[in-house]
């Protein structure tokens, strides 16, 4: 019974949070359309909605930084324990290598996420904004029509053609994103609501998506290590 009640409270809290974000975003859209004051970028001269949204983002970022610190702390302990015991922990280093390969898109991955089908073509800024929202909602790996994407993958419109990493992609667009579906879905829904005035968007949750494409990292030719 207590679990059931806690569950109900948690659901209610989630509902409140989502409603508040919806409320803030509703005002924000109007604000951006109407307000010439939208260029006041010093904190003192900002409207309260902007400040409230900034608080929301700072809270989220700080929570992520706390989690990063906890993971690094654990990694450091693991390395130190092995060193104290007179050895070396290859496993901790291999785990970090794997994480970076996933982040850099240089290794195939699988996991829960969303598959978003867009029955029409998008302009570069529309795709950028969809990716911005999904990354901010914790999207970890992306592929579009079988092409792996990270933030350094160029997205450029040339006329009505969408070029991803210099290669043309055509409709229908199928975007696979791995991450927590609970977080990704509201972000995808909001983006879809603006796209759907023009193109049909179908969002499906997947318990296990595979992204087998990888990015061939370009060797550094001009850039060198160090400041």
């Amino acid at each position: 019974m207590p679990n059931h009640s806690a569950d109900r409270i948690a659901r209610f809290q989630r509902l409140i949070v989502v409603s508040l974000i919806g409320l803030a975003l509703g005002f924000l859209v109007v604000l951006q359309l109407r307000s010439q004051a939208a260029v006041a970028r010093t904190l003192a001269s900002q409207d309260n909605t902007s400040v409230a949204l900034l608080i929301n983002d700072l809270n989220r970022a700080n929570n992520q930084l706390i989690q990063q610190a906890a993971a690094l702390s654990q990694q450091e302990t693991q390395l130190r324990q092995a060193l104290t015991a007179g050895g070396a922990d290859a496993q901790a280093i291999s785990k970090e290598l794997q994480t970076l390969r996933e982040v850099n898109g240089t290794t195939p991955v699988h996991g829960p996420g969303l598959q978003i089908r867009i029955l029409g073509s998008l302009m570069d800024f529309e795709l950028q904004d969809l990716l911005n929202s999904l990354r901010a909602a914790g999207g970890e790996a992306f592929s579009l029509n079988g092409r792996r994407m990270i933030s350094s993958t160029s997205i450029v419109s040339r006329g009505n053609t969408l070029l991803i990493g210099g290669q043309a992609v055509s409709a229908p667009l199928v975007l696979s994103v791995i991450g927590d579906p609970e977080q990704l879905e509201p972000a995808a829904d909001l983006s879809a609501s603006s796209l759907q005035t023009r193109v049909q968007v179908d969002i499906q949750r997947k318990s296990d998506l595979t992204i087998s494409e990888v990015i061939n990292a370009r060797p550094l030719i001009y850039a060198q290590l160090g400041r």
């Binding site: 990063q68 794997q98 290794t107 699988h110 914790g138 791995i178 991450g179």
Partner: peptide, 11 residues
């Protein structure tokens, strides 16, 4: 900062 990957697993 650094990166955390929670959902994507190596294939």
């Amino acid at each position: 900062a650094t990166f955390l990957v929670k959902n994507a697993q190596p294939l």
